[in-house]
């Protein structure tokens, strides 16, 4: 993206402050909800908190009706970060707060992974890594068949790049020139068994997506202004004839210092005393 375009889509200072606040809200709510479940994916949400905030509080076209046919869609290949999405759905009024507060408890619709049958505002269920880009491709195809103008955003994990189905969808989306399909890769560098580069390397990632026929932008996934501008542009660029991939360079666990350096925090639990300290650290920082 050249600097002129970046400036065209750059959010103003008030928006930047608001989005930072919402990203912080996502991190704080994630800590609170995982205290209920007593296990959860803190760091998978923390790397994506700015992505959630930019999409739901700025970029996506939404309405009070979570089933509105012309709404923009959001799908998560990395469904285990759903604990970061649920507070947003409650904040937007799609989900009662008392349901949110029963996260993972017996019979509650909210589990570790998002379920479109049970949770208003979830555009597609996930949990089996590798399906979501295909699901989004289908939505984008159907949107075109119906003459609708919604944009479908699909957030993918970087470990997810190891799934073959992702590349089936990547080929298909480029072939069908799905310019209203946007993939966002949360390139936080880690998966369950360790660093992505050690477990099963995926670089050069930008060149791969380009070779598959996508327009590619690499951004700092925690720079809310740069990230939001890239997402706004991906949605607004009517002239583009290709799908768009935004590779968001992020830190797994961003916001809580010890989580940023210990990959084991992919899954874990913070005792309430540690949770308080983590909250305090998040509140003390501007990301």
């Amino acid at each position: 993206m050249n600097s002129a375009l970046r400036n065209d889509f750059r959010p103003d200072e008030e928006t930047i402050a608001r989005l930072r606040d919402r990203a912080q809200f996502v991190r704080l709510e994630t800590i609170r909800l995982i205290e209920i479940a007593k296990v959860g994916h803190y760091t998978s949400v923390f790397s994506a908190a700015e992505i959630f905030a930019a999409l739901y509080y700025d970029v996506m076209r939404l309405s009070d009706d979570p089933k509105w046919a012309d709404r923009d869609r959001f799908l998560m290949g990395k469904g285990h970060a759903a604990v970061g999405l649920f507070p947003i759905l409650a904040d937007l009024g799609y989900l009662p707060v008392d349901v949110l507060n029963g996260y993972t408890r017996f019979g509650n619709p909210l589990g570790d992974h998002p379920d479109m049958r049970k949770v208003p505002g979830v555009d597609f269920s996930s949990g089996s890594i590798g399906h979501a880009l295909s699901n989004g491709l289908g939505m984008a195809l159907a949107g075109r068949m119906q003459g609708r103008s919604f944009t479908t955003f699909v957030m993918l994990g970087d470990g997810e790049m190891q799934e073959g189905q992702v590349w089936e969808a990547a080929i298909g989306a480029a072939h069908h020139k799905l310019n209203r399909l946007v993939a966002i890769v949360d390139r936080n560098g880690y998966q369950l068994d360790g660093a992505v580069d050690d477990v099963m390397g995926i670089e050069p990632l930008d060149e791969k997506w380009r070779a598959f026929g996508w327009e590619v932008h690499v951004v700092d996934g925690h720079d809310i202004a740069e990230l939001t501008a890239a997402l706004r542009r991906a949605k607004a660029d009517e002239a583009r004839t290709r799908p768009c991939c935004i590779i968001a360079r992020t830190l797994k666990g961003k916001g809580v210092s010890y989580m940023e350096t210990e990959p084991g925090w992919h899954l874990g639990y913070l005792d309430p005393s540690d949770a308080d300290a983590a909250r305090a650290e998040i509140l003390s920082k501007v990301i």
């Binding site: 597609f124 399906h131 699901n135 289908g138 939505m139 984008a140 159907a142 609708r148 298909g172």
Partner: peptide
């Protein structure tokens, strides 16, 4: 696999 998952996406609309 892509076809089946995409069909599911299509059916949501």
């Amino acid at each position: 696999q892509n076809m089946v998952s995409a069909a599911a996406g299509i059916a949501t609309t």
